[in-house]
Nucleic acid binder design. Structure first.
Lengths: 339, 339
DNA sequence: TTGTATGCGTTATCAA
DNA sequence: TTGATAACGCATACAA
């Protein structure tokens, strides 16, 4: 049996409500009894039950985080930042992996509502669960990706613009056969990057080639497979825009295995700027996302919504990115570009 | 107001206990009423409250995971594996980062007990909280590292042997000035690797040099700093054993910045075999840990303990590792070695 | 300043 | 096969 406030009340010779008041530092308890109660609680090694507390307060001080895959560095880093911000305010983190699968995403949503999460931060992997998200009536913030048209707060970057700028750089370096390896089709962030890529091509009157766009799962293996296919094309691309640095590792692997050199034979630009990106065999040019700001802002927004109850309006935060020029794109211009 | 079994009972015209029985698929309810209750529940979009359920059952079906830092690939990968295994059995994951800080580790422990976790899987970062771990009386499994002498289950690898074999390889390649970049001093896994390293030196009658052992925080930055210091030594080492691949990235950076070549000037062997390890500028020779087995075994052990209550005995599982030979150690022998 | 009583949503015991 | 009712540990409105 764990010790409860009842035990403390009995031993301290007071009522349970007094114990409750004293332990929660509420006014209306004499210093003498408060001290006594505290010492008894200490002695009994009392730990309040959040379960019981939540049942009456309707608040669990926990928030759910739904991401595709915690083992991917990008999401892991985001999770750590969110975790830290949350803990600072005394909130717990319940972790869920959607695996970029709408049905699993739905399960995550169910799990979180049943657990009584006070709010949800999620990277939506599809638009399938829009209705469910509305139905569960929980404060929610979309991170990185979002679902268009929904009245839900959202923090991210201008993916379209970033995709546009990356492609412009490649075009500026003389490339016209530019491929794009994107993430799963359900992510708005990935789709926006593709749109930017297409707009840049159009702007330079380069005819788009559908075969140059590959959808993967943002993993090393995915990048490897997509690149293998690109290499087999009749008009092999001379440049690849990969929308994730982890994925770019696989791109490199496929390229090197085929005896192709980067950037000599094929230029590569990634996305995210992970810790390893500058240490790959060829240092990777990439788009740096302000991950810390993204995470903390998402938490800020969510906690505000939780505090405000129904009354909190939707808010959208779009943060700036920066293109980090390294060797993989073949540019001699080492100056980074703000997007 | 969320809908409760009371609402269902009222609308279906039955008692709450019948609703509870029906919804939990317990025997003793006629098919007719069960169906009726289920349809009402469906219509009201009923989701059970795990909070209330937990208050009476004393089980939350959630387990806490305490790791140093979820943004480190090694722990992120472990977390994902654990999460999957847990979800398969209907358990939730509450994530905690200790940041290799004993005090934060203590906070994590407190947080988890207050949240009512049914059990804990943890990578202990120190021996400071041994007593606390005992006191909270929760089923616990140590993963990767453990605290010696404690009656707590543990799954990991033979770190001492791995450190020994790595050092032996380096010695076999002709090195005698071998440095070791270890993790924080609180991790038993890291310390065992150092012991193995020292034993191998001793076995070959190479005098140990204390200056050759560096403790870091297992990050890129940590590896960078440690290597910088090693390079400045009078007798610069000709080989470095880094006890983590992420850390090895920083080692490479420091080496390259100083104009040193790997493995020509300095041989490097890492630990973990992360996804990026074969894609670094110089493919990294490293010790592969059976991470999937480690994670699933930890979950298996924990759930068994949770099911068994007090009666479950301590169990220790030591899994096999493999040394993956790549270019960074300068060996022409590409055959991997089972440790 | 302190105590009594009630309820949160569920399970479980016992009676009908 | 079903229904009252107590209990879980806590917070809180109200009474003393």
């Amino acid at each position: 049996m764990r010790t409860s406030i009842k035990d403390i009340a009995r031993i301290a010779g007071v009522s349970v409500s007094t114990v409750s008041f004293a332990l929660n530092n509420k006014p209306g308890v004499s210093d003498a009894t408060r001290l006594k109660i505290q010492s008894v609680a200490e002695k009994l090694n009392y730990k309040p039950s959040n379960i019981a507390r939540s049942l009456v307060t309707k608040k669990t001080r926990s928030v759910g985080l739904i991401i595709p895959d915690i083992s991917e560095v990008f999401y892991g880093t985001l999770a750590k930042i969110i975790q830290d911000a949350l803990n600072e305010d005394g909130y717990r983190l319940i972790l869920c992996n959607s695996e970029s699968n709408p049905e699993k995403e739905a399960s995550c949503l169910d799990l979180l509502t049943e657990s009584g999460a006070d709010g949800i931060i999620m990277v939506p992997c599809s638009i399938n669960n829009a209705e469910k998200i509305l139905n569960i009536m929980l404060p929610t913030v979309f991170l990185d990706s979002f679902i268009e048209g929904m009245n839900v707060s959202h923090v991210g970057i201008d993916n379209e613009k970033a995709g546009y700028r990356v492609t412009e750089i490649l075009i500026g370096l003389g490339h016209s056969r530019i491929a794009c390896i994107a993430g799963p089709a359900g992510f708005s962030s990935s789709n926006a990057r593709i749109r930017g890529y297409q707009r840049a091509l159009k702007g330079s009157r380069i005819s788009a080639n559908d075969l140059y766009i590959k959808y993967t799962d943002w993993t090393v293996e995915g990048g490897f497979r997509a690149t293998k296919e690109l290499i087999c094309l009749k008009d092999t691309p001379t440049a690849i825009f990969v929308t994730g640095d982890t994925c770019a590792i696989g791109v490199f692997e496929a390229l090197f295995k085929s005896g192709l050199h980067v950037p000599g034979d094929i230029a590569v630009i990634g996305f995210d700027d992970m810790k390893f990106s500058s240490f790959l065999k060829v240092p990777l040019t990439t788009v740096r996302q302000p991950m810390r700001d993204m995470g903390t802002e998402a938490v800020l927004l969510l906690l505000k919504q939780i505090a405000a109850g129904e009354g909190a309006g939707r808010k959208e935060t779009i943060l700036d990115t920066e293109i980090v020029i390294r060797e993989s794109c073949g540019s001699k211009n080492k100056k980074n570009l703000l997007v």
